[in-house]
């Protein structure tokens, strides 16, 4: 772990047959910022949650910036304030859904430093959520114990006395084929649980709306394959 980080966690979601998500990195700096990002053959995507409450996203294409954008471009918003200590509440700032039937055949070796979260059964999705809480870690663990269906991944102390809480759970998911058109510029991308081309879904993409002030980042990560007809 770099000295600049209080938390530096690499994680992903993995199915029993070895199919995986992209590998994500969640880190907190000594200044109290929280960074969440992933890199894949599609490039780097990063979400930065500044200690001031200001947030921004940044995207970098591995093969250069997206055609219409500068090298780093994204959106900005302000996250919801952390609820006061004693409220028993937390403020979710990001959540990622990994539908199990859209995970991908692994293409890189596991270097052993990745926390693999067990994927939900088929027709399910694994959700990983990130929240700020002013409650002490013990209280957070107590609440999650009561809820039973959520697993604490990490509880990282921040310099201002708050905690960044990372937890996961399994939920239902409805599998539907999705074809994103390339409009003749690039190939269409097919996201299919059935994977009719037996491709292993090598292209992993993240979809989600731009958050408005006070909202959490919601991302859906799915694997697909380029199709030409």
């Amino acid at each position: 772990m770099s000295n600049n980080y209080l938390l530096d966690l690499r994680f992903g979601v993995k199915r029993a047959d070895g199919y995986v998500s992209d590998i994500w990195r969640a880190s907190t700096t000594r200044l109290g910022d929280f960074h969440l990002g992933t890199s894949s053959i599609a490039g780097v995507e990063e979400y930065r949650f500044n200690k001031s409450g200001l947030c921004r996203s940044a995207h970098t294409g591995a093969n250069g910036a997206p055609a219409a954008l500068r090298d780093r471009a994204g959106f900005r918003w302000r996250r919801a304030a952390t609820p006061a200590r004693g409220s028993g509440r937390a403020s979710r700032v990001a959540w990622i859904a990994f539908p199990t039937d859209y995970l991908s055949r692994p293409t890189v070796e596991d270097d052993g430093e990745i926390l693999w979260i067990d994927a939900a059964p088929g027709c399910g999705a694994t959700y990983v959520e990130f929240a700020y809480a002013a409650e002490p870690e013990e209280g957070i663990r107590g609440v999650l114990d009561i809820m039973q269906d959520r697993t604490l991944v990490r509880c990282a102390a921040l310099p201002n006395g708050e905690n960044l809480v990372i937890f996961c759970y399994h939920a239902d998911w409805e599998n539907k084929d999705l074809r994103v058109p390339g409009h003749g510029v690039v190939a269409d991308v097919l996201f299919s649980a059935a994977d009719p081309l037996a491709s292993g879904r090598p292209l992993r993409h993240r979809l989600g709306p731009a958050p408005k002030d006070g909202e959490a980042v919601l991302l859906l990560e799915m694997g697909g394959v380029a199709v030409t007809n």
Partner: peptide, 11 residues
């Protein structure tokens, strides 16, 4: 029919 609304799809 069977329709599933996952937590992330509610909105």
């Amino acid at each position: 029919g069977l329709t599933v609304i996952s937590p992330g799809r509610v909105e």
